[in-house]
């Protein structure tokens, strides 16, 4: 039995650990100062896929849509145990909202061919929408199980998984192919030293071309990498048969009218001394203005 699990991941700016350095003097975020990281819940999705590889011998294919630099999260996936990677990259994808993104990724999934299971992190920390997973499922006309914590069983034609619901959990069974969105519920494995040795030279054709002296040399290097299983596939919009009017800005129904930076208001806090007297006065004030009591 050889089943294929496709994991969609995203490289995101690290919005969770915003330090003083990442703030401009005006109190807004300096995006350029934020490191690009593997979206945390996508790492949980990859871990779940790798557990299925350990348990059932599935093949794990990792795909991402993004700029050429997003190849970094693909190499990181190879270091952890992924079998194959695809970088979906094209200027035509730029400016996509969740609808256009899910369409592009659904085209990518179709191009991969027979896929039994698609895994996505629940949401990415740069947008926090949690929309792309369910939208990919709808575009492929397959069922979805959101908020999965654990796969209980994977058969040739169905999957049973435990997922979180408000105030508890459910065990659901769905036929394959199926899409799962994954929440924090496992500890993503670290990168394996041997795999780093093996895959640190893995590159996309774009990365090869950037450093090659001529197109001919690039072609030669790509062929060599491919023979060693070190060439990361790079797919364009045309390659995955994506319709021009459904991707990028053109394929995005939502438009941003304006963006306002959240500015940390200057501290106007009244300082209270941590002494008996200071705290007595504070409590007295709160009782007097009916905040307390």
């Amino acid at each position: 039995m050889s089943q294929t699990v496709l994991v969609f991941v995203k490289q995101v700016p690290d919005t969770q650990n915003i330090t003083g350095d990442a703030m401009t003097p005006a109190g807004t975020v300096n995006r350029a100062a934020l490191p690009a990281i593997f979206n945390p819940e996508d790492l949980n999705a990859l871990e779940l896929a790798l557990q299925l590889k350990d348990r059932y011998g599935v093949k794990v294919v990792v795909g991402t849509m993004g700029p050429p630099a997003a190849a970094e999260v693909l190499r990181s996936s190879l270091f952890r145990g992924a079998d194959e990677c695809i970088l979906l990259t094209d200027r035509a994808f730029a400016g996509a909202d969740t609808l256009a993104t899910s369409y592009a990724l659904s085209c990518c999934a179709k191009k991969v061919g027979k896929v039994d299971l698609i895994l996505c992190g629940r949401q990415a920390i740069d947008g926090d929408t949690a929309q792309v997973g369910p939208q990919i499922a709808e575009k492929l006309h397959i069922p979805q199980i959101a908020y999965v914590e654990e796969v209980i069983n994977l058969d040739s034609d169905k999957i049973r998984a435990r997922r979180a619901i408000e105030g508890g959990y459910e065990i659901l069974e769905a036929p394959l192919p199926c899409l799962l969105t994954v929440i924090e519920g496992n500890d993503p494995r670290p990168m394996a030293a041997l795999k780093i040795m093996k895959y640190k030279k893995a590159k996309t054709p774009g990365e090869v071309a950037k450093n090659a002296a001529s197109p001919e040399e690039a072609e030669k290097i790509c062929a060599e990498l491919k023979a060693k299983g070190l060439l990361i596939a790079e797919w364009s919009a045309d390659y995955v048969d994506a319709a021009k009017d459904r991707i990028g800005l053109a394929g995005s129904p939502t438009k941003v009218k304006n963006i306002q930076n959240v500015i940390l208001t200057a501290s106007e806090a009244k300082s209270v001394e941590p002494t008996d007297e200071g705290i007595n006065n504070l409590m007295h004030e709160l009782i007097a203005d009916h905040t307390l009591g």
Binding site: T15, T28, R31, D126, G127, K257, N258, I259, Q260, V262
Partner: peptide, 12 residues
């Protein structure tokens, strides 16, 4: 959006 660092107004 962006981890709460910006407020966006969006139109469909």
């Amino acid at each position: 959006a962006f981890g709460g660092n910006i407020i966006a107004t969006i139109v469909n």
